[in-house]
Write a protein that binds this DNA or RNA. Structure first.
Length: 496
RNA sequence: GCGCCUAUAACUCAACGGUAGAGUAGCGGGCUUUUAACCCGCAGGUUGUAGGUUCAAAUCCUACUGGGCGCACCA
């Protein structure tokens, strides 16, 4: 214990802790027998007051106002906050002196009858109280809250304590996740858990994290998607399946990217990507209705209308409308590269038309999409797990859903032709060999699984964090992840 | 990885080349229905770190560290 590094206030609190112990007060006590939550006291005020029955509540002291021989304070529990009132005459001078040693941040249990003050605030007239937990560090300011975003992310417990809207966001996040699960289970999808540690990191274009297993003496990858294992289950006869969980991608951080994030992937036999569009639309609109009671939202000061049906437009069409470029008129990779150069896009020398088309979309179109839109029929080169379109084998039955400029979902009619799949993996492997660390890895085991025969299948992945951002009106993914990834920092003296 | 912004008391913020300040929180005193309680007094700082310019640096310059935003990368 290096006491010199503590702030003066933290030192004073430690001294008070000693004083309390000298007075035989247990500073870290047992649970308090409560009769009500703070919100319940307010809800049942009339009966409590009429009957004159005592209520027992517990909570953290968040403010104190002393008046000589009487004192007011607010305590807060998970349900809300409540004012308490102590009079020396009522609790006795020993208890009253003890109360003087309590600080903002301490957790106490109180018992007393309930009344309304002159100004009309429901208040517990404390007849007895007990310290449950002594707090040794000062809380952030009550009025302005904790604003410094770095402190908020690094000390989320403080953020949650003093910024009530933050707690609301995470309660809503939890509800959304619960509703996703409920929505899918009710429709007969089986929730499963597949490995987080993979020998081959597949199912997406991304760099994986690498870890090591000592006993086996091998490196393992943290999963970058749940796709390939879920498809194995489809082959195995589990016809409607989903997994909701964390995936990991070793990429840059941004307001819409955290290295670990939550996805839900859903697979269903005898379905196609149109069915997955229906599912996406139904799921997101039903959750939105449940949370907001309307489909007309506001995101970052701008109106956002989720009313279905959401338009379903081909990628080439969207590019044409936004940039004026007609990709169907482009013949060959050379012409596409020339076009990219004309539009100020830097692309690799060996880029194909499909890759360039996709780049056009990402650079010039994605962020202009606002109300929900299904963008469909993506080039085969950037969609190695999706089935080719019958009318045009250069395209695939793949769609992405955009809401408020964010990619929320990605889905396909799954590729079921194991021989085509092998070719696609080979192409990806070639890209890996030429330095593309995000290209898909060859997964022989998965190919063998496919060779047994995979029924026609629709698959869907949804970025849960981004969905939560949209539904809670948060600008950064770090606002919807309790403990976002930050560079570690040495503990500084006096920091909370 | 690159660019811009940013770091002052436990918290929220001032001071923008000339003695580091306020509010909250804290400590001491007063006050028995207050409520951003109030009144009187006190304490609290290596201005992120390390250099440099200057008679003088929180302030200007350089580097580093953390963070934010944008770009790049990336579903």
């Amino acid at each position: 214990m290096v006491l010199e590094h503590l702030s003066d206030q933290a030192l004073i609190r430690r001294q008070k802790l000693g004083e309390l112990q000298q007075k035989d007060v247990e500073p870290y006590g047992q649970k308090y027998p409560v009769t009500h939550k703070t919100s319940e006291v307010i809800l049942h005020f009339r009966e409590l007051e009429e009957e004159g029955t005592a209520a027992s509540v517990y909570g953290r002291i968040i403010s104190k106002r002393g008046h000589g021989k009487a004192s007011f304070a607010h305590i807060e529990d998970g349900s809300g906050r409540l004012q308490i009132y102590l009079r020396e005459e009522q609790v006795g001078s020993d208890q009253y002196n003890l109360y003087q040693l309590l600080d903002i941040g301490d957790i106490i249990g109180v018992t007393g009858t309930v009344f309304k003050t002159r100004k009309g605030e429901i208040t517990v007239n404390v007849s007895s109280f007990r310290l449950l937990t002594k707090s040794l560090r000062p809380l952030p300011e009550k009025w302005h809250g904790l604003k410094d975003v770095e402190l908020r992310y690094r000390h989320r417990h403080l953020d949650l304590m003093v910024n009530p809207e933050v707690r609301e966001v995470f309660i809503t996040r939890s509800r959304i996740i619960h509703m996703i699960r409920e929505f899918l289970v009710q429709r007969g999808y089986l929730e499963v858990e597949t490995p987080v540690m993979h020998t081959v990191a597949g199912g997406a274009s991304a760099r994986p994290f690498i870890t090591h297993h000592n006993a086996l003496g091998i490196d393992l990858y943290l999963r970058i998607a749940t796709e390939l294992h879920l498809k194995r289950l489809i082959v195995g006869g589990i016809e409607k399946v989903f997994e909701l969980g964390r995936i990991f991608r070793n990429e840059g951080l941004s307001t819409s990217h955290n290295p670990e994030f939550t996805s839900v992937e859903i697979y269903e036999v005898n379905a196609d990507y149109e069915d997955m569009m229906d599912l996406t639309e139904e799921m997101i609109t039903s959750i939105t209705r449940e949370i907001h009671g309307t489909l007309k939202l506001n995101y970052q000061g701008r109106e956002l209308d989720l009313t279905p049906p959401w338009p379903r437009r081909e990628l080439s069409e969207v590019i044409r409308e936004i940039t004026g470029v007609e990709f169907s008129a482009v013949q060959g990779d050379d012409a596409a590269r020339k076009l990219a150069a004309e539009h100020g896009l830097e692309v690799d020398k060996d880029s194909t038309k499909g890759e360039i088309m996709y780049t056009f979309f990402e650079k010039y179109c994605e962020d202009k999409l606002w109300n929900p839109l299904f963008v469909k029929d993506y080039p085969v080169e950037v969609s190695p797990l999706a089935q080719r379109c019958r009318e045009n084998p250069q395209l695939t039955y793949r769609f992405e859903t955009f809401i408020a400029g964010k990619e929320i979902a990605n889905a396909f009619t799954e590729l079921t032709d194991s021989l085509d799949q092998r070719e696609r993996f080979v192409q990806q492997a070639e890209k890996r060999d030429s330095g593309d660390e995000e290209a898909h890895m060859m997964d022989e085991d998965f190919l063998v699984v496919m060779e047994y025969g995979m029924a026609p299948t629709g698959g869907l992945g949804i970025g849960v964090d981004r969905l939560v951002m949209v539904l809670t009106d948060r600008p950064s993914i770090r606002d919807v992840i309790l403990f976002p990834t930050l560079r570690p920092r040495e503990q500084q003296a006096g920091r909370p």
